[in-house]
Structure formats: C-alpha cells, structure tokens
Design a protein around this nucleic acid. Structure first.
Lengths: 223, 223
DNA sequence: CATAACATGAATGCAGCATGAACGAGACCG
DNA sequence: CGGTCTCGTTCATGCTGCATTCATGTTATG
C-alpha cells in the first residue's frame, strides 16, 4: 500500500511516517499543499493522509479542487479537535474519514487500512479468497483455517493482490505499490516473492497470466 | 501509564502526584482548566484526574466540553462536594468515577488503575495471559503461580504490554507511555528491558515482530 | 524447434535484534 | 554524612532472519 502523507510539521510527519512504515505501508511525504497537489496528479497512491493546517492554504481547498478535477483518491484528514467545525467543511469537501489530534498512530493506521479496504469495495476487514482469509489489520493469513506465517514483504505483496482480486495485477504495478522503486527490469524480486507466496499458500492460488501479470484466485480453476 | 492530574492546590497536587508516581504512574500536571484543556487536546493520556474546584470555571464544564468534542479519555473526578446533585451532574457531564475529599491517595491510585483497566476492556483486576497473572493493583506478577520479582520499570513495561495484549505494541508507543520522553532513536533501552523481562518471564512470552514491535503472549506458539 | 517469459533453489549481504558488561545516579542504611 | 547497593541506561558485540541477486531449470508461444 502506497500512501501520500501531507503534513508540514516535520516531527509529526516523521513519527507518523515511521508508524505507518512499521505497519507495512509505503509512505511518501509532502510538506505543503502545492507539493501534494503535484504528486497527486503525477503518481498513483492507494490513499492520502491530509493535515488541514498547511502553510499554503486550507487543506480543504486543495481537497475540494482534487474532487472537482475528478481525483477519487481516498483521503484521511487529520485535524485538531478544537476546530471540529472543520469536520463538516472537510466532509463536504470530500474527505473519506477523519482523525482528530492528538491521535495514537495506531488509530491512523487502523483507519487508513479500513479506508483502503473500502475503496476496493470490501466491507469486511477480513478478505476471503477461496479458502484463504487475509486480515487487513493484523496482516495475518489463514489457509483453510490454519495460520500461515508470512514475512513483512510477503504480507505486503499478498495484501495488494488480495485487495485487487480478482483483477490481474501487472509487475510494474506491484513494483510501484509494493516495492516503491523504479522497476529495474533486470530484477526478478517479484517473481521470487511470488514463488515463495505460492509455496506457502498453495500454488493454485496465484495464477500467472503470461505477459500480463498475476492474479489471486480461490485456488480452483474455473474451467 | 501516563496520566494528567488537574489540580490547582499545589500542596494537594504535589502529594497526589508523588503518590501516583510511587505507584508507577507517569504524571503530568495542570493547574487550571484551560491548561488541562490544552494538554488534553495535544497529548495522549491513559486517563485524567480532574478536581472540580478549579480557578477558571467548574470542572464539569470542561469535562462536558471534552465529551462534546469526542474526547473519550477516562476521567476520575475529585470533589469536596458530597452532595448527590453534584455527583449526578458530574456523571452526566461524563465522569467515569468519583473520589470525594478528603481521600486516601491510595484510594485514588486504586480507582485510577481500575479505570484504566476497564478502559482496555478488562473486567477483572488481575490480567491473565497464558500462565502469567499480572495484578494491576499491586504490580505483582506470578508465572504458573510462582511470584516473579520485577523492578519498577520492568513492571511498568509489563503493565503496558499486558493491558494492550494481544495487540502488537511498537517501540515508539512504549517510549511514549512507559518512558515519557521523546524517543531517542539511538537508544535501545526498550530492547534491553524487554530482554530482562524475557529472562524473568520466559522468553516465549514476549514475541518480537520484526519491524513492528513486541507482543505479550501466553507463551505458546500457535503452530 | 527456438526463443522469450517465468519458476525456483541456493548464495549473499545487511538491517534489526538480543544480550553481557560497564557505568552512573539515586536510595537506603548505618 | 559517607558507604553500599540496587536499578536504569548506554555501549559494544554477536546473531538471526529476511530481502535481494544469481544461476539454472521449466513452460508457453509463434
């Protein structure tokens, strides 16, 4: 999951960024509305976290502009409790959820996950694909009821596939959202990790579409 | 456990603060409603102790405002007034428990602990995790019935882990609630204390999740 | 059948973690 | 008021597990 964190306070950005990274989220940071605006229009993120108190204009203005321009990105807004009237303004500007300061970083992570999950059309926090169950909050997986232990990177990869399922996900999409680096064509990191996931989940669960990418399935080939 | 003590009488604040500190509680003090209001909106506490007789307005007003703004912090109210009507007003303003002056500091500590415990969803004062039993009031621990002697800091660390269990607790969260200082990234104090706790409790009881933090478990690996 | 795309076992290097030992401050006791 | 002891913290070192790369085998496709 790749997220844009729009926060001008360096200390807060650092703390929150670390917490999110610890939860397996790839974080890119913007310190101003203008910077965020540029990034939102040039990169693809799974969600954005937007502090309303920015140096260059009220966050709700930027958000409103994005919505007016058809940018559907899920947005989690951070705001001070004292200014709760902002809440109404924020929601009407197009915020998808709110967290008020001060917050536990854990809560931000929790809500962020819920937001991304819902944006993919999953109402329940546990994604079920065939006999697999992926808990979006703990990152834990069970196969036919038995817990499967994954490494951090494996969990990130599976999370992305599970959210996207049954869509086919290309390597470049995975490179961008799970590895956060320019896709070095000589690297087969993704292939290797997919291979490991297959071994742990059962090979049938990850389907290869030659030349297109991978797809997470229930493990049954529907003739 | 980090607590905000709102008390304008310096002598009383000092006495109560020391008693709480002696009980392993990290105490921050506010001498007025306004100061408390600011702190409550900018920091995170496990609970607040609120004297109703404040220089700048009835404590129930502040409390009512916090509740109206969605601040769910557990609040223990101190009052000299013993009339039932005040009590009712306090409860309806959102107090979670009451202590009437004069009080024994021990009672405040006792009720505070109960309050924090309940806020974490534990009905019983003794938290049981596998063969461990942690008494929230005495801070004492037994493992399979045998008493384990902990130092003050170890007890604080274990208390936080026990309250949070089976959630994973990050290092930064521990730094904030158990050490009450900005997390110096170069310090490995937490690692060391966890290591010591492990030696006393048995290594299996504290699970490490690489890159995420620690988790208190029953000591059995759910294979 | 040739070639490109994919799969996977094994090797490697590094970041995060564990822990023994030393240090210093404060508490307690004489 | 001085000595001793306990405990919290830091430092240094060794270890573990994991992400990544490499090399080689396998499968699709024209």
């Amino acid at each position: 999951m790749k997220v844009l964190l729009v926060e001008d306070d360096p200390a807060l950005a650092e703390a929150l960024g670390e917490a999110l990274a610890g939860g397996g989220v790839l974080v890119e940071r913007a310190a101003s509305g203008g910077e965020a605006d540029f990034l939102v229009r040039t990169e693809t993120y799974d969600a954005a976290i937007l502090d309303l108190g920015l140096p260059d204009g009220d966050g709700t203005r930027w958000l409103g502009q994005w919505r007016a321009d058809g940018i559907a990105l899920p947005v989690l807004v951070l705001t001070a409790r004292t200014r709760w009237a902002d809440k109404a303004a924020g929601f009407s500007a197009g915020a998808d959820d709110y967290v008020t300061k001060p917050f536990e970083t854990a809560e931000v992570l929790f809500r962020l996950r819920a937001l991304v999950r819902r944006s993919h059309g999953h109402a329940h926090p546990v994604l079920r694909i065939g006999d697999l169950a992926f808990d979006t909050h703990t990152g834990s997986v069970t196969r036919a009821g038995c817990p499967v232990s994954l490494t951090a990177q494996e969990a990130r990869l599976l999370a992305y596939l599970a959210h996207a399922a049954p869509r086919v996900v290309s390597r470049s999409e995975l490179a961008e959202h799970v590895y956060d680096r320019d896709h070095e064509p000589d690297s087969n990191v993704i292939d290797v990790q997919v291979s490991r996931l297959r071994r742990k989940l059962g090979a049938a669960h990850i389907e290869t579409l030659r030349g297109q990418g991978y797809r997470l399935t229930g493990g049954e080939e529907a003739g």
